[in-house]
């Protein structure tokens, strides 16, 4: 079981309040991603749940029991750190067995569990090596192995993929998702990368300055961002925003339209502009267009497949009306 409830949880470092009182419920078996720009308090929130930091106020409940002042080891949670935090002086086997050794588990059971974890994560070939002799991806697997042997009620991941190169990151992303499906255990995952959030999460928690901006499934956040911050943060490339006259036409203070919701034509459309940069990927074409009305601005457009245009070409853009997001003067979603 791994249902985690945060009730008015609050954190201040001295005078500085990093997390104002906050409520959140994480259901058993859910894959929850905390996402936000660096310094938004997402890692602090994770460390509060882990027990590595004290809460300044409020209550943390795990499976209904108050865990607010329970030491980290007794919370039944396992954590995978950004730097992997492997013990450099121990072999892979000993690293994975360490939590079991601390729990004074019988040697035979320790061996059995370590072997099982090694099999799941394909670690058997280098089980007697030291972390220093492993590649980044292998270290990552050892860190995960160390977490799963404990059979925790929830896993905590603190930006686990940020030290890997792009290709490896994609592979590990799939592995972690698959692990979640197989173990069916609650996972809380912190990242600043919205792509990781979108691809892995059952539920995304978007944080900014310690405040939860929106909680929802990836598609909910994509389709109905609650405010300008979420709208700009979720989705890649970023949503285009328009103020003033264009927004007024839709009775809004600001309107937003995603690059993939604009159609491009060389002959006619709502807005006229010139191409600044066109990026041809084959599968997609991204164009950065300076509108005629306001050439200092840039509108990003995504067209599926190849669209032949180069710097200086004149193009016309037309937004898909039902995909226009409207925001009021406070930046909140309208309608």
């Amino acid at each position: 079981m791994g249902r985690i409830t945060l009730d008015k949880v609050q954190k201040a470092f001295g005078e500085v309040e990093v997390i104002p009182p906050l409520d959140l419920t994480i259901e058993d078996g859910e894959f929850v991603v905390f996402v936000g720009p660096s310094g938004c308090g997402k890692s602090t929130l994770l460390r509060l749940i882990a027990g590595l930091e004290d809460v300044t106020g409020g209550q943390i409940r795990i499976d209904g029991n108050d865990a607010t002042s329970v030491p980290p080891a007794k919370r039944g949670l396992a954590m995978v750190f950004q730097s992997y935090a492997l013990y450099p002086h121990m072999s892979v086997r000993k690293n994975i067995a360490f939590p079991l050794r601390m729990a004074k588990m019988e040697q035979a059971e320790q061996d059995r569990r370590v072997q099982a974890a090694a099999d799941v994560l394909n670690l058997s070939d280098y089980i007697d090596r030291r972390p220093g002799q492993l590649s980044g991806g292998q270290r990552q697997r050892v860190a995960i192995g160390r977490a799963i042997v404990r059979e925790p009620s929830a896993f905590l991941f603190d930006e686990p993929l940020s030290n890997l190169d792009a290709a490896l990151r994609h592979g590990m992303r799939l592995e972690i998702s698959e692990l979640h499906k197989r173990l069916d255990t609650t996972m809380i995952y912190v990242t600043h990368d919205q792509v990781e959030a979108m691809t892995m999460a059952d539920k995304i928690v978007v944080l900014q300055a310690g405040v939860i901006e929106q909680v929802g499934s990836p598609l909910e956040l994509y389709k109905t961002p609650r405010n300008l911050f979420v709208a700009g943060f979720i989705g890649s490339p970023k949503m285009n925003f328009f103020h003033g006259a264009e927004a007024a036409k839709h009775d809004a203070h600001t309107i937003g339209i995603r690059p993939e919701h604009l159609t491009v034509s060389t002959t006619e459309g709502t807005w006229k502009g010139t191409v600044g940069v066109a990026e041809h990927l084959g599968s997609d074409t991204f164009m950065h267009i300076h509108p005629e009305a306001n050439p200092s601005e840039t509108i990003t457009v995504r067209v599926g497949g190849e669209f032949s245009a180069t710097h200086g070409d004149t193009v016309f853009l037309t937004p898909a009306d039902d995909n226009i997001h409207r925001f009021d003067a406070d930046g909140m979603r309208m309608g």
Partner: peptide
């Protein structure tokens, strides 16, 4: 950054 426990 640490808990009350480790500080004492």
């Amino acid at each position: 950054m640490a808990t009350q426990h480790s500080r004492s």
